[in-house]
């Protein structure tokens, strides 16, 4: 509450106030998205070019991450994989975020039978382990990224729905909700215009974690051969490629694994900082 002058808080003040975790996470995510959008600018080689003169080379200056059994430069493959894996993070979660949040808002506001019904749907879906359910759906639809998005979309929205419904239930009992009602606004206006912006925080924070989970899921399915298909460079696929050489050429699997860890860490740190930031702003 330090601003009383009537001016909007200045940009550098806002940046200065951000939690450190959010800044570190933000830098990692920014770098990841830059790599994802412009992989060719950073990759020293063509990720799919074979070099039979340099098979299974350990990391050197020429190939900092080494080469695989076809002589492909691992650094270039890891960088090009950013394109697919960041796409997985966003595409797999964006529909569940929007659909789940909207459904959650309506359910939380309506309460009663609607909510009871929604609760049973949620129960039915989360009874199954997430990964098992996704694998089951992908096996039916067939392997590939699009089918993975569909499978995640069918399941993932319930988590956002549940979070938002719970928060809406809190918000709808507050005075400003009654004030909106007593002002004669339609229920839809009260829910979407007044309550939802105040109730989105948990879903927003969870979204960050969920994108990290989506990358893990994409990699897991890629590893199992149900997600991105070789020769596409995708971290899970790369790790799977390296599994036969684990004892002799560890770098093939390790570096994609590190990329997963760092990107996941970026999302988690950013989400953590975002939660803190939104909490202190209240």
């Amino acid at each position: 509450m330090k601003v009383v002058t009537g001016q909007r808080p200045r940009m550098h003040r806002v940046l200065f106030d951000l939690p450190a975790t959010m800044i570190i996470g933000g830098i990692i995510l920014f770098a990841s998205f830059v790599l994802a959008f412009f992989p060719s600018l950073f990759a020293p080689y063509d990720p799919n070019a074979f070099d039979y003169g340099a098979l299974l080379h350990a990391p050197t200056l020429a190939h900092p991450f080494g080469t695989d059994n076809y002589g492909r430069d691992m650094l270039s493959r890891v960088i090009h994989a950013y394109t697919i894996d960041m796409q997985i993070a966003v595409f797999a979660t964006i529909v569940p975020v929007i659909v789940g949040t909207l459904i959650g808002a309506v359910v939380g506001y309506a309460g009663g039978l609607t909510e009871a019904f929604f609760g049973r749907v949620v129960d039915a879906i989360i009874t199954f382990p997430f990964l098992v359910l996704v694998i089951a759906i992908v096996s039916v639809l067939g392997p590939g990224l699009i089918n993975m998005y569909i499978a995640v979309g069918i399941i993932d929205w319930v988590f956002y729905g549940r979070l938002t419904a719970a928060e809406i239930k809190v918000q709808k009992r507050l005075d400003y909700a009654d004030a909106g009602r007593v002002m004669g606004y339609r229920p839809s206006r009260v829910v979407f215009r007044h309550l939802l912006p105040n109730a989105m925080t948990p879903a927003l924070v969870y979204w960050m974690t969920d994108m990290a989970l989506a990358i893990l899921l994409g990699s897991s399915l890629g590893y199992l051969g149900l997600g991105a298909q070789p020769p596409a460079a995708e971290w899970g696929v790369l790790i799977a490629d390296g599994k036969n050489f684990m004892t002799t050429a560890w770098w093939i699997s390790i570096f994609p694994g590190l990329a997963i860890v760092i990107t996941g860490l970026g999302f988690s740190l950013f989400g953590d900082g975002l939660a803190e930031f939104l909490r202190t702003r209240r």
């Binding site: 005075d175 009654d178 004030a179 002002m183 004669g184 007044h194 105040n198």
Partner: peptide
């Protein structure tokens, strides 16, 4: 009909000015 009446002909002021305004608008 109630919506037209509320906020139009009949208005209400709440007790708590800290919570009765929407914080995000």
């Amino acid at each position: 009909e109630l919506r037209r009446m509320r906020g139009g002909e009949i208005a209400m002021i709440f007790q708590e000015p800290m919570t009765a305004l929407n914080p995000v608008l």
